[in-house]
Design a protein around this nucleic acid. Sequence first.
DNA 1: ATCGAATTGTGTTACGTTTCACAATCTGCG
DNA 2: CGCAGATTGTGAAACGTAACACAATTCGAT
Lengths: 205, 205
Amino acid sequence: MTTNIPDIVISRLPIYLRALDHLSQEGHEVTSSQELGRRLGISSAQIRKDLAWFGGFGKQGTGYRINYLKDQLRQVLKIEREWKVALVGAGDLGSAVARYGGFAERGFHITCVFDAAPEKIGKHLGKFIIQPLNELHASLQNNKIQIAMIAVPAEHAQSVADALIAGGVRAILNYAPINLNVPEDVHVQYIDPILHLQRMTYYLA
Amino acid sequence: MTTNIPDIVISRLPIYLRALDHLSQEGHEVTSSQELGRRLGISSAQIRKDLAWFGGFGKQGTGYRINYLKDQLRQVLKIEREWKVALVGAGDLGSAVARYGGFAERGFHITCVFDAAPEKIGKHLGKFIIQPLNELHASLQNNKIQIAMIAVPAEHAQSVADALIAGGVRAILNYAPINLNVPEDVHVQYIDPILHLQRMTYYLA
DNA sequence: ATCGAATTGTGTTACGTTTCACAATCTGCG
DNA sequence: CGCAGATTGTGAAACGTAACACAATTCGAT
């Protein structure tokens, strides 16, 4: 199967999964594309089309068994397994990220933390020991790390990204407010709250 | 001019603006759609089309004067002014948000901080005093606040959003991992790093 | 056993977005 | 001055995405 599934479809699957989790918690065992759509503000047709890329997960007349659908989506997204994650930057933002328990809870385990500042090296950040950047390459490779988060100042983000990629990282979550240039086979996602705010003010009076 | 500009166009303007800031800092005075596009991984045609929605900011043969274009974009996005922002939730995440200086730097001034926990009320968070939720409505209206950030647990996010909207908020930046149902005239943006990570694992081996 | 209400999966149509391609214009230089 | 090179703004074409609409199926009620 060489079908090329649109990235925009992939981007919605985690959202469906999140909604399915909530439905589970509320005691539901079965749901429908309509119910999901109502909750998410997405048309039921789109949800069905999205899921159809990966197979027929539902039953006509009945809908979708929530637990089954969750398992299937987790497999599609490859999050039924655990992932190791490197964190670069142990400043305010990096520290907050390292202390946040939500990543490990969801199977993303921070395994290494790096920082450039000599005075921080060797100190603990949560349960991690901060390593110097010159150990980055070796640590990434020893731990076979494919995912990294960047929480350094914008001016250093590109060189950090280059080093991460050289060390084998293929997915980057970038908290630095700058666009990264990366090879085609490397995936980058951006988190910049300012961008979101600036996008909304346009619509305000 | 009742032209309805696509939201996807609006969403790119802050990105252009960020890149223009970097170009300024590097000493450039003029740029072109090509140069911008190269930096951002966006086609030059798209950048020109996007900007053309708002007028001819460039000069044929020459390109765009960076400072002029920045000013124009800031006006379009309504970020040439200062905005007051309310923050709900003073837990780990809320505290990190409150302490982060980047918002004020960009004209988004956190003005009120709210939390449900009685033991936090009246304490300082950075330079803000944490207020109880029952003061939310009055404080929003007194301060004419239109923008809010939600940093409470998922299960309380919807009711907080409802209260914010009742108090006059029209733009919400939601850090809680849940979809919010809001009226048509209210804008919501989401920040959930887990979603970004789960979206990238699909492409990893 | 049959009916009716609910719901999926999907071919088709409608809509939205991006890219192409080029005339128009600008600048600097000989 | 007049030309070469660069670059914008934009109509038209190509591409991508979402919505529509319905046959097929399921299930519970009678």
